[in-house]
Each structure stands twice: as C-alpha cells, then as structure tokens.
C-alpha cells in the first residue's frame, strides 16, 4: 500500500504533498527516542506530538509518513521541514488507537 492509498482509505487530511512511497510497516509512539530506536525505513508513524523534531526524526529514520491524531495540528516548522525532507504528514480527528486499528485492518502489519 502506498502513502497516497493509505491516506485516502483512512480519510486523512494531508498537510504536505502526498507521496506514492510504498509503506512497509508502522510504529505508534509519542516518545521521539522510541522512534529513533525502533522506527524503520518506509514506516508510518502515528503520534500526538506536533513539533519540528517529529519531522527531523521521521526523516532521520527514513519514515514514509506521519499521522498526527486526535485533531492535533502540526506546528509550522514541522510542516516546512517535512516538505523539505519529502515526508508526508497527515492529520486525523480520530484518536491514535482508532487510526492504528484501521491501519492494521488495511493490512499494514
């Protein structure tokens, strides 16, 4: 499944250009240090954190996309760095648990 297909299937709102990168897995965490330790290339990251270092960590780990949940909006500097680094950032009004469950149901394991 690509980032674009995933965004459409979950009804996510894009904050940056949506890529066609193939998604290989996902990680749920609000600790950046956890993602630095356990994130992997082409993963989707589901989090409630909204600051600039979310984009920096996502790029450092080669993540394909970030989903900010529970109606949280990204800080401007998160969006600008994500655009520079070609990391797709979505928002969702749904809580992390629901987004993760739907993603799992779509076959992202």
């Amino acid at each position: 499944m690509t980032v674009a297909e995933l965004g459409a299937a979950l009804g996510l709102t894009p904050c940056t250009p949506v890529s066609d990168r193939e998604v290989t897995g996902a990680i749920v965490s609000d600790l950046l240090s956890d993602v630095l330790a356990n994130g992997a290339p082409d993963y989707v990251w589901i989090t409630i954190q909204t600051h600039r270092n979310v984009a920096a960590v996502a790029s450092a780990q080669g993540l394909a996309a970030v989903i900010l949940t529970a109606g949280r909006a990204p800080n401007e500097d998160l969006v600008s760095l994500a655009e520079t680094e070609s990391v797709t950032v979505f928002t969702s009004l749904q809580p992390t648990y629901t987004v993760a469950g739907l993603l799992y149901g779509l076959g992202v394991r």
Binding site: A37, N53, A56, S59, A60, L81, E85
Partner: peptide, 11 residues
C-alpha cells in the same frame, strides 16, 4: 545516551 548519530542537516 543512545548511540544515535546527529544528522546536522536535520537537527
């Protein structure tokens, strides 16, 4: 401190 390198372009 974990041995994660700092990428200056990002951080």
């Amino acid at each position: 401190l974990p041995s994660v390198p700092c990428d200056p372009a990002l951080f």
